[in-house]
Amino acid sequence: MNQEPFIISPKSMLNIKTKPLMDSDDMLARIRRLDMTALAAVHERYYPDVYRFTAFRLSDPHAAEDVASEVFMRLLEALKRGAGPEKNLRSWLLGTASNMINDHLRQVYTRPVQELETIEDLPGENHDPAQTFEQAWQSSELKSALKQLTPDQQSVLTLRFAGECSVEETASQMKKSVSAVKVLQFRAIAALRRLLEGNR
């Protein structure tokens, strides 16, 4: 049995799926009314998660910032139309971010030169200076492995394990059935594992 050096204790995985939902019905009602205080609170509470989510999949930190900011503008647009999140605001934001990342990557793939430039910037700009070299290396290794997956596989893994969305929320955001998401996540994680093992 190959014990990974980066294997984590089960406790650090406790919050993967069921993070308490803090957006109450009252909060959702207030943002639908475009209540400024509620909207400010929403940005304050969810920007870090949305930014991490975009930075996790996009190598370019500036692009990650732009997409994260644009996610909140999309929220505002949706609220103005009377649409927007019905139950879980966080999963709506992350789902929107996921779709926007896929759109962004589609555009970037047509310009691979830009992508190569940003990969070099990645460990220095996108990570805490306190992070050790090994952690940074693992991070870039994980990211490069993640990038080799299909967009759907990347989406399911980031939504489920980075974004802490439940299977149901992920299915709703990806417009797939719950069983399809389970199969997709299983195949994606198996592929990721193979890629990580192949790099060693």
Partner: peptide, 9 residues
């Protein structure tokens, strides 16, 4: 691997 994804995030 799933745990590492979460940790990195």
């Amino acid at each position: 691997a799933a745990g590492q994804l979460h940790q990195e995030f």
